[in-house]
Simulated assay, not measured.
Amino acid sequence: MTIDLGKKVGMVEDFYLDPQSSNVIGFVIKNGLFSHHALLLSSIQGIGQDALTLTKEDALIKEQDNPALSSAFKGKDILSYRVLSEGGTVVGTLGNVLFNVALPQAIQVTGYELSGGLRQRISNQYPTFTAQQIIRYGQDVLVVPDAVATELMK
């Protein structure tokens, strides 16, 4: 939603992540049937339960116009990642990303939840780990210390 015109400019469809810092650097905004733009965090005015606001519509840019976006991970891709221990044991698959959105210009991934089985879905309690516990982001895996993996598999 733009503050200047009070106009809806699209829907948040994904996010860009800098895996080194765990910072979200922007969002993918779907603003047409086949049209997507990027929105950098520096352009966000505020984040509410139902919307994020930006000052002007021209804050929407093309991904290729910002080199940091082109090299960032996208959230949808991360949700298909497997979690692997240092020792090579597959712990599970990511099911959710946890954010700290207290400061709109400094959104950070604070942790991850594993996708769970029937027991986790019924109890709505999923194994979680913090972003700081990740040793490495691979092409399609996140590597965590063996001790973290052991806790996640309990």
Rank of each mutant, 00 (worst) to 15 (best):
Q20W: 12
A38M: 07
D18K: 09
Q20I: 07
F27C: 00
V12P: 00
E13C: 13
S42P: 03
S22P: 05
F15K: 02
F34K: 05
D14F: 11
T2S: 06
L17I: 07
D14P: 10
L33V: 09
V24S: 03
V24G: 01
I44K: 02
F34M: 08
G6N: 13
G48L: 06
V9C: 12
S21P: 05
V28G: 02
E13M: 11
N23T: 06
I25D: 04
K30Q: 11
I47L: 11
H37K: 09
G48S: 14
L5H: 14
F15C: 03
K8N: 14
Q45G: 09
G46V: 04
F27L: 02
D14Y: 07
L5F: 04
T2N: 14
I47K: 03
F15M: 06
V28I: 13
Q45I: 04
E13Y: 09
F27M: 00
I44Q: 10
V12L: 04
F27R: 07
V24C: 08
S35Y: 15
V24W: 05
L40H: 05
Q20E: 12
S22R: 05
D14M: 11
H37Q: 10
E13R: 02
I3S: 15
T2K: 07
L17S: 06
V28C: 06
I25E: 00
G48R: 09
S35Q: 11
G48H: 10
N23V: 01
K8L: 15
H36S: 08
Q20G: 13
I44N: 01
I29A: 02
N23L: 11
D50S: 15
S21M: 10
Q45Y: 08
L17K: 04
S21T: 13
T2Y: 10
Q20V: 13
F27D: 02
L40C: 00
I29M: 00
G6Q: 15
D50A: 08
I44V: 14
P19S: 10
S21N: 08
K7N: 12
E13K: 07
L40G: 03
Y16K: 01
F27T: 04
A38C: 12
H37P: 01
K7V: 09
Q20K: 11
K30T: 11
T2I: 08
L5Q: 14
S35I: 13
L39S: 03
N31Y: 02
F27I: 02
I44S: 09
G6C: 10
I44Y: 04
K7M: 08
S35G: 14
I25W: 03
D4A: 10
L39W: 07
D50Q: 15
Q49V: 06
G46L: 11
N23S: 06
G46H: 05
L33G: 13
